[in-house]
Design a protein around this nucleic acid. Structure first.
Lengths: 229, 229, 229, 229
DNA sequence: CATGAATGAGTTTTCATTCAT
DNA sequence: CATGAATGAAAACTCATTCAT
């Protein structure tokens, strides 16, 4: 693939091409195994230009992480309507999350695998994004408690742990869904809701979580959440 | 740090020292960033001896993965009594899992981060162990359904997804518990049970999962599971 | 010593410098004992540049063999006029051969000693050149038989053996001539002609082979062939 | 192969086993590629014992060269009756030479290829043997001249060159004969005599050298020398 | 801007060689 | 004598990074 070798493009565009290439290479080869040569070639530019714009391999990797972290957070944000009930927000957010990671697997590999595997400048970069998402989920849980007219007597740390677990489960399912052919992002989201919202106990008792009704046109997948009943 | 430089030890002992050092370095630096020099130095031996016993960096890494995977599975197995109800088995298994990963964080980093990030000889090595655990959890879910007198009309893939999510959540929580000072492995296990067994919905409705009573002598941590109420 | 450290030269020039250095080191130290470090230093460049241009030690050695084999064959070809009698062609070819090997002793060591001693990629490389020369000599022998109005009732294998012996003798004499001070390539060629053409028997009977008369100006060496009478 | 691991043998015997193994490995792998480990294993002894008896790789290689050089010279000597005419002595010597090199190809590889390819301690070791043989041939040539009632007005250097060429041709033919299936050592010797004694000129004129009559029992190969007629 | 030329520093790996038992 | 344990030194090869044009 690689961008067509066009001359004289504005810096911003060139930078995006480089980041595209870098994300692809980093995601597939891993940070250390990726070579600047390969990235420059895939981006269709000379190596010194990569250094001129992005300074170093570390900086380039960091730039990849930042761009993709931002894109992921925005994708999730854009998928959630803030004025619906908490469980519905969670459902929507999970759907957006699984859809985005399925759409950009290299970027997801960079964020989920590479960034966390290569120590400090990078780990905290992605940790920041993760905390943002965990905070969002934490708010959802507290909102849900409020909606249930329950005093949030859940200790803060407990809620943090729950959010952490939920996010971790989602991350894990994303990898599983990408690797298992035939699993759609909606199905993955439904599994997550059953698991996280209803809980195994309710599931055993025949009380799965049901997805809200959707507008026509998506019936095909509508079964996903109902599968369990 | 590192083993005291004692001369002339039997091969089996030296090999364990080398694996100890390798797990530590691999866990902290990552597979590619780890240098054989550093590992040898930490093990208190010369590099040629490492190669004489472990053959190559790949083989050394594989040996680390195998040893630690075996240790982890055995730790979980040893913590679970097979004749108790399913939820209790899960509770015990999670406790053993969190305790083991907290005790050997470098080994956990090797298994959870490094081995999965560096391609094929290694990924499948750890995938085998993970599948073993996922299968164990899958059995627990089916056993729980049976205990609840429910026909396991859960589709197979759905159960697999649930088990995958549960394991993923636990993995994620292990990292969080290790990174958050003051969180014990019992607390982490309790959070997991609330999350996975009761579900957020029940939790909101004031129906958390309660840990079984324990014999005296462990009261100190007894609060962990009760915290939520 | 080595090339003066001039910066920024075109690739083709640098490659020749590297091959020059490599031939010298390979010829003197041998393939295995030669180190890429030493070759790079003698060539006046850094090791990575050698790898960038020549890929590997094997490829570098092969490139040396090819270049020098081609040069040797061309030198012999250029020295032989195809329209003169067979013995004269042989005489001219031997002269050119000894002159070339005397002029480039390291290259000759590479071809004659190193390439044949280090197994397969290399041995067949130089064997190809040698077969070319053996075939040339074989044609000369058959031409000589024709000129002598003799049916070439020599069995093919016998002729092959004779050509092989002749080439072997010449190769051996090249080393001897290089090592014995004061032996010119003309003298070596004359010895070869006496030995191979006349044969020891004729020599004993006072019938040496006589070199053809040459134009004035080379009388100094004219004695070479006459020496025997 | 490798000697059976028997305990407590006299030093002289053990040394021969080591030399046997070393000749085989050096001959097949080459000096540098041969590892002391492999040699020790093939000899059926521990590595330190090799060092105790033979001191170093260099010394071991030198010992191999000396032993095999001596064996070759003795084989040739033993094959030659000193009271027969010069050409017959040459014929017998060549036969013994080709027979010995065919019988011990690894030893011949050590002497002809390896020893000459690896620089100074070794090259001169084998050069000494070679000079002995060249001197022997030189004497034969002078004797032949005497027998032909010719004053040996051959200049000394010329005779040396002839002997050198003859030995070189024989060495070359030895490799060729070993590599060409179906060529016996007698045939190789006959080719050498035609080439060296009669000369290509006589050969062309239909005057090959004829081997002396042999006693019954070897007629099978008798044709070798006659082939040319 | 763009690029071909060039390298310092480091990697894995191997091997001849030696003790301590 | 015999051997398992151990290593110093060096080799091939790679890569992020920088000038000069």
């Amino acid at each position: 693939m690689g961008a067509v070798k066009t001359k004289r493009m504005p810096r911003a565009v060139r930078e995006q091409q480089m980041l595209d290439a870098a994300v692809q290479i980093f995601g597939q080869r891993g940070y250390m195994a990726a070579s600047m040569d390969e990235i420059a070639e895939l981006a269709g530019v000379s190596k010194p230009l990569v250094y001129l714009y992005l300074n170093s391999k570390e900086d380039l990797f960091t730039a990849c992480i930042r761009r993709e972290a931002k894109a992921l957070v925005e994708a999730v944000r854009a998928g959630v309507r803030p004025d619906v009930p908490a469980d519905r927000q969670l459902w929507e957010g999970l759907g957006a999350f699984f859809a985005h990671t399925a759409r950009t697997p290299d970027a997801w590999a960079v964020l989920h695998l590479q960034a966390r595997t290569h120590g400090e400048p990078f780990a905290s970069e992605v940790a920041a994004m993760r905390e943002e998402i965990v905070a969002f989920v934490t708010q959802l849980i507290l909102a849900a408690a409020r909606e249930a007219h329950r005093d949030p007597d859940l200790p803060e740390r407990e809620v943090a742990g729950l959010a952490e677990a939920l996010v971790g489960a989602a991350e894990s399912l994303a990898a599983w869904a990408n690797a298992t052919p035939g699993v759609t992002s909606r199905q993955a989201a439904a599994t997550m809701m059953n698991f996280a919202w209803a809980g195994l106990g309710d599931l055993m008792a025949g009380r799965p979580w049901s997805p809200p009704e959707e507008r026509a046109g998506t019936q095909a997948e509508e079964q996903a959440g109902a599968q369990v009943e």
